[in-house]
């Protein structure tokens, strides 16, 4: 009983338990769901959301939100093939350039939020709109194919049977968990999210940390964009759109307060898996795309009611 109670007060654990339950039930009832290949595929899809949500988690912990992650993913996926120089056989130059661009977009978001005092929700939404317009001009609506070797490896290779994308996610998770729980910066982000005024008066710069966080969010969105590009082998306008809502939902599903100041990436990880699983289950049900969207929206809401609930005092 007490164990159950503490589980209910521990959203990351609760979300993880939920994922396991759903996987068990679905494996027993749906043919093929429990196959190794299928579960591996679900994790591969989760990795993309998980990586986008890494930056989103950090920003939300500090009390902000990043609505430009979808657009940043698209920008990266479309620009990377265009800027990867042919003389570089590894493709690393293109990746570094693309991540630089993604981080710069995040940095600009941070400048707007910290120095121009534009609320993050407005700043990042405006940035997303701006980027989308720019992409239409640059890419002109056609898909761009990727030839970058590293990107393709990242999206397709399976060392030791594990998708490279999942390995990348594991690495990202370790770094982000270290930042949040083992580095001074993480404690500062959380304090800023809970009470920016008291934190600023304690000698923590709101501006510098805002800048840092949005830059990180841009970076992780760019990383996710590269992974998606490798998995799809093509970049096109709108490729990043589905990841905006899902990244935020994964964060909240993991028990992080949307108001900031409380939460952990340890919850976002099962949150991302839960979202992908749910989507997969809906796809199995034979329904029109319209109904699928309605079901997906309702399910997110229902899941939030169960797990990611703001803990009441």
């Amino acid at each position: 009983m007490n164990a159950l109670k503490s589980a209910f007060r521990n959203p990351p654990l609760l979300t993880l338990i939920l994922v396991i339950l759903v996987w068990i039930v679905a494996s027993l009832t749906l043919r093929g769901f429990g196959a190794f290949g299928h579960l591996r595929y679900l994790l591969e899809l989760s990795a993309v959301i998980g990586i986008v949500a890494a930056g989103q988690t950090l920003v939300i912990l500090m009390g902000g939100i990043d609505l430009s992650v979808g657009a940043v993913i698209t920008v990266t996926a479309i620009l990377l093939p265009l800027i990867s120089p042919d003389i570089d056989p590894t493709g690393l130059v293109g990746i570094v350039l693309a991540l630089g661009i993604a981080s710069s977009i995040g940095f600009l978001n941070g400048v707007g939020a910290a120095y121009l005092r534009v609320p993050p929700i407005i700043m990042t939404l405006a940035m997303a709109t701006f980027l989308q317009g720019m992409l239409v001009i640059v890419a002109g609506g056609s898909a761009v194919s990727v030839t970058n070797a590293t990107v393709i490896w990242l999206g397709q290779a399976r060392p030791f049977g594990i998708p490279a994308g999942v390995l990348l996610w594991v690495a990202v998770s370790i770094v982000v968990l270290l930042i949040i729980h083992r580095m001074p910066a993480g404690a500062r982000f959380l304090a800023l999210g809970a009470n920016p005024l008291a934190t600023e008066l304690s000698g923590v710069s709101v501006k510098r940390n805002t800048l840092l966080l949005f830059t990180l969010s841009g970076f992780f969105a760019g990383l996710a964009g590269i992974l998606i590009l490798g998995m799809n082998r093509q970049g096109y306008v709108g490729i990043g759109d589905p990841y905006l809502l899902t990244s935020i939902a994964a964060v909240v599903l993991g028990g992080t307060s949307i108001l900031g100041g409380r939460g952990t990436y340890a919850g976002t990880i099962p949150g991302a898996i839960l979202l992908v699983t749910t989507t997969a289950l809906i796809t199995v049900v034979n329904a029109s795309p319209g109904w699928r969207s309605i079901m997906f929206g309702s399910l997110i809401l229902a899941l939030l009611l169960i797990s990611g609930r703001e803990a009441r005092r």
Binding site: L190, A191, A194, N195, A198, L201, G261
Partner: peptide, 13 residues
């Protein structure tokens, strides 16, 4: 309460 402390966080934090 508003300027001195991060109320929901622990004494240690």
């Amino acid at each position: 309460k508003h300027e001195g402390l991060v109320l929901p966080h622990s004494i240690a934090s």
